Computed example of a mutant assay.
Amino acid sequence: MIRENGSIKLSTSPGRARTIRTKEPIKKVKNHLNRKGKVTSRKLAAVLNISRTSVHRRLKDDLLLQSYKKIVEPLLTDEHKEKRKTFSIWVRTRFRKEDTIKILFSDEKLFDIDGIYNSQNDRIWAVRRAEADKMDGVKQNRKFPQKVMVWLAVFSKGVLAIVIFDEGTIDHDRYIREVLPVALKYRNDILGTDWSFQQDSAKPNIHHLTLQWCSDNFSSFIDKDHWPTNSPDLNPLDYLI
């Protein structure tokens, strides 16, 4: 065959005949997914009485499927959607394309020192539970963990400014004294005067004294009447950083 054709092409596989990844079992997996929609590979293996490895091969190699997690998005009411539509029209009439990369986005977030613990990714192998407990198998959480507030600002080129509040909460007075001057300083030093400041509808941000300060010091900013509420997906600090 090599002399005649330059290669060897066998009519049948020289190995053991397939029993799991044949057309009929693959069709069963596909039909089960179409009926159930959401199912784990472990449950699918139990239903079809095959190993999880075989299920993975059918899903990825034969059906060319990938596993995706659900994306969590804010629940938008009709009022939210209408405000978003109004905001979109306002942005298109107010900002040119090159102006959109000159928006300074800002946001605050409260962190606790315990952080986020995922027990799924932290396992200890032991014969018994008591033995696992001795091997640092207990994670202790504080009932009232110490927290710290962080304010951050970003624009199209990256992170611009950060303010950390070690103690207390932020009211409008503290926001005006400790946060807004930082944003103004970076504007003057890096961005110049041709840019816009964005903040969400948190109470310190929409206080009348805060809005007055922004109006007096920023050449352009997105005020509370235009920025739509319940819109974390519009701010890169919420969905990216």
Rank of each mutant, 00 (worst) to 15 (best):
M1E: 10
N5R: 10
T12P: 00
R16T: 12
A17S: 12
A17H: 06
I20K: 13
I20P: 00
H32S: 12
L33T: 06
L33I: 14
G37F: 02
V39Q: 07
R42W: 01
R42G: 09
K43I: 12
A45L: 08
A46K: 14
A46M: 08
I50H: 06
I50P: 04
S51M: 03
R57V: 12
L59Y: 03
Q66M: 09
Y68S: 09
K70A: 09
I71D: 04
V72F: 04
L76H: 05
R84M: 08
R84A: 08
T86Y: 00
S88E: 08
S88V: 12
I89T: 10
K97G: 09
I101L: 08
K102G: 06
I103E: 02
I103N: 04
L104I: 15
L104M: 14
S106N: 10
S106E: 02
D107T: 04
E108I: 07
K109S: 15
K109L: 03
L110M: 12
L110F: 07
L110C: 12
F111T: 05
D112I: 05
D114S: 14
N118G: 05
Q120V: 11
D122F: 04
R123N: 08
R123K: 13
A126P: 01
R128N: 12
A130F: 02
E131D: 14
A132D: 00
D133C: 13
D133Y: 05
D133I: 13
D133P: 00
V138C: 06
R142N: 14
K147R: 15
L152S: 13
A153R: 00
S156I: 07
K157H: 11
K157M: 07
G158P: 06
I164F: 09
D166P: 09
E167H: 13
T169A: 12
R174Y: 00
Y175I: 04
E178P: 04
L180N: 00
P181A: 07
A183G: 11
A183V: 10
L184K: 15
L184W: 01
D189V: 11
I190H: 09
S196W: 04
A202V: 06
K203E: 02
H207V: 08
T210N: 05
L211G: 15
S215F: 02
D216H: 08
S220K: 06
F221R: 01
K224C: 11
D225Y: 05
H226R: 14
P228N: 05
N230V: 14
S231D: 05
S231K: 04
L234I: 13
N235Y: 02
N235G: 08
L237Y: 03
D238P: 03
I241A: 12
